[in-house]
Computed example of a mutant assay.
Amino acid sequence: MKRVLTQRMTIAALTVVMMCSAAACSGPSSNTAEQSKGEPTFSGPWAEDFRWSYNQARENGNTFAQNVLRDEQITEAEATEVANRYQFCMADAGFVFDYVNPDGSTQMQTGNMSDAEQQWFHEQDIICSKQSGQIFITHLYNALVQDPDGELRNRTAEEIRQDLAECLKRKGAVGSEFTAEDVPIVDADGEEYAQLGQQFTNPGGKYYSEQNSESWVQCNNDPRK
């Protein structure tokens, strides 16, 4: 048995920023429509991301996530409840984590899973991330903790990719040949970006080591450090 540390939702924070940059998340003009429907309005540095996540939660019928996001604040207690919901959901599917932290980092005991078991894990991860509200909430909780004023929020998708590549090189996680072009543009579900992340965080990945896994998470959290 081996111990695997998986830190995923910190990556999702960057994913949503890039998706909003590429897809032009709703701007202030949508506030009037939201008010007329009795929906919350968002006005802080992360307003567009709250609006995007709130709308995604609504489309998925997750009223718990909507209620958490509604006031544009996410407390540690709320983030902890999300983590607990995710952990219980995965346990019901047969995947027992040692812990799931409010920031989305997880640890579990795992052997050498077969391809079928890995596929089952990824399918359940998607289901539980949505059911628990993790996919809608945790990345914003991390964003508010790490960058409350939104200093990193308003970069273009190209600037985000460039910052990530430079940070990874600075930390020695990749060689000098690695460029922003090696960082995929985030698609509708972030799958290609997640696959790149797995090359750093999953044993057997092209860039995997414990240090590189940490570097990937750190560079996604804040490439300035």
Rank of each mutant, 00 (worst) to 15 (best):
T75N: 00
W46P: 13
D189M: 01
V82W: 00
G104H: 02
E34Y: 14
A194L: 02
F88K: 14
E72D: 02
I135P: 06
A93M: 08
I135G: 09
Q195S: 08
Q66W: 05
S176R: 09
P184G: 10
A24Q: 09
R153G: 11
S26I: 12
E210F: 15
W216E: 04
E123F: 10
E59T: 03
Q162C: 01
F97P: 00
E191M: 08
S21K: 15
M18V: 13
A22N: 13
M90F: 02
N62Q: 00
S29D: 14
P184L: 06
S53I: 11
I11G: 15
R224M: 06
P40L: 12
A143C: 12
Q66I: 05
Q162F: 05
Q198A: 00
P148E: 05
S30M: 15
I160V: 14
N142S: 09
Q119G: 02
T80F: 04
N55S: 02
N31I: 11
G205S: 03
E34D: 13
C89E: 08
D49V: 11
E59V: 08
G111W: 02
R8W: 15
N55W: 07
S129C: 11
Q162D: 11
S21R: 13
V174T: 02
D98I: 15
T75K: 02
S114L: 03
M9N: 14
L196I: 08
I74E: 04
D222W: 05
F97L: 00
A57T: 03
V96P: 03
D147H: 04
